[in-house]
Design a protein around this nucleic acid. Structure first.
Lengths: 253, 253
DNA sequence: ATACACCTTTACGCAACGTCAATGTAAAGA
DNA sequence: TCTTTACATTGACGTTGCGTAAAGGTGTAT
């Protein structure tokens, strides 16, 4: 049986370009070239290609494959062992990378939480603003600053385990929220569970929880495009959904 | 403080070429260009470079980094999460690859064991040849072929666990041999343990063990360059060492 | 005759620089 | 001041394994 590039390519599940490339780098030369300059492959080439593709699937470089299929069978085992070492090394590097990325994400989440707090402080300040008559400006400002400071202190004072816990809680909020969003019902069981988890999450940073503040922060998620972007990451509309759920949860607005 | 390419490069631990490249792709433009055409970087550029390198260490592509450092801080978390997903996917692929490579290596080891058997059959045949008078040619050939067939049957009939066991045993042989080689004494405890492990390994394939055959195979490891290459993979001279150990172990030659 | 599927070679593009090459400039010692 | 030395510039090719045109020839069916 004889094959042109495309026929062999279709048979082996590769592109004709790949075969021409293998010819170019002398990894798989056609059996002969016909009078029109067409590459013609025979059974031996089919077999060799299968070998090549086998090693390729194992992630071996074409250069190494050339050695393997050219040299006698013994080099195969040796080359594979070396290859395995490389792969194991790669995986270790990947593991380190992943762990670092996760640490960075955790920090980033931490920053987002910090922003939550600052927003919260701003919200409290706004509450105070509404009660303008009661306090002087300096006191209000100090109150806002103190709230942030207290929260920051709380975050800084967190133990490794606490930090892990709050990070996990944050993930749970998101996951529950995603599931709840699919139900479409902000008053439903899942959505209310998400709202409750969100309350727990906030309480890690706030020393005093009030329904008003909770509802206010939820509203901010919709008003501030940065927060909206964060909560809508997987599904647009999630921030709004969380706000609705929290408003029902707190019974406010 | 102002820096030329090399000064900044040395400070940041990158090459000047990298900085020029970052300039070229507009990721990090110098603060200004002096009268001689030199790139001059300022503090802002140093800070930005540090950010860039931070993300680069996490394995983020330069294209993504550009988005991250250009856009406000919120995109950072999102980009990192996407990046983490990619990394996790990569690791899974790697795990599959590694497992496949290991399977292939095991098979390859299996082939080597098969070759051992064939060699063994050949060895038996040679023994028989030496006793030319006793048997006819056909019987000898049949005997040799039968031995190979029996061994092959034995390998084919192995259960998954048995195969894993024999593979592990093979690894133990090599490891013990490596350790023994360092002692330099083929009569030592380690070397004799290696010889014994090697006997156990052979017994997985042979239905009848004899000291003569064991010693003969060990000699073949030295005589056949393919076997020598296999056993000398980590340390040249290992095949010879194994032969010596086995000769002492069997008390032959 | 013409359409259509297939073949050929040539060559750029991808990521993130490394590595010459050819040439201009700054700083430091004799 | 002259020369050496260190450093600057742009330009361009190489790396891996092909994808993707582009420009043109071939084979077969209608």
């Amino acid at each position: 049986m004889e094959y042109t590039v495309q026929k062999l390519a279709r048979m082996a599940g590769v592109s004709p370009r790949t075969l021409r490339y293998y010819d170019e780098i002398s990894m798989l030369k056609p059996a002969r070239i016909n009078s029109s300059g067409y590459r013609i492959y025979g059974q031996a080439e089919v077999d060799r290609l299968q070998q090549i593709l086998f090693y390729r699937e194992l992630g071996v470089s074409l250069d190494s494959i050339k050695d393997i299929v050219t040299a006698p069978s013994f080099n195969g085992a040796q080359a594979l062992k070396e290859h395995r070492e490389k792969l194991l090394e790669k995986r270790e590097q990947l593991d380190v990378l992943i762990s670092n990325v996760e640490k960075t994400i955790a920090q980033s989440e931490g920053r987002i939480m910090m922003m939550d707090q600052e927003k919260f402080a701003g919200f409290k300040q706004k509450l105070v603003d509404d009660n303008e008559a009661k306090y002087g400006k300096e006191i209000r400002e100090k109150y806002g600053a103190e709230t942030v400071n207290k929260s920051n202190q709380k975050v800084k004072g967190m133990s490794q385990e606490q930090f892990a816990e709050v990070t996990k809680l944050g993930t749970e909020v998101i996951e529950t929220l995603q599931a709840a969003f699919k139900t479409g019902d902000p008053a439903g069981e899942l959505a209310q569970k998400a709202a409750d988890l969100h309350r727990q999450w906030l309480c890690f940073y706030w020393d005093s929880y009030t329904k008003e503040a909770h509802a206010g922060v939820a509203q901010m998620y919709v008003d501030d495009p940065r927060f909206t972007a964060y909560y809508d990451e997987q599904q647009p509309g999630t921030a709004k959904f969380l706000r609705d759920a929290v408003h029902i949860y707190t019974g406010i607005k």
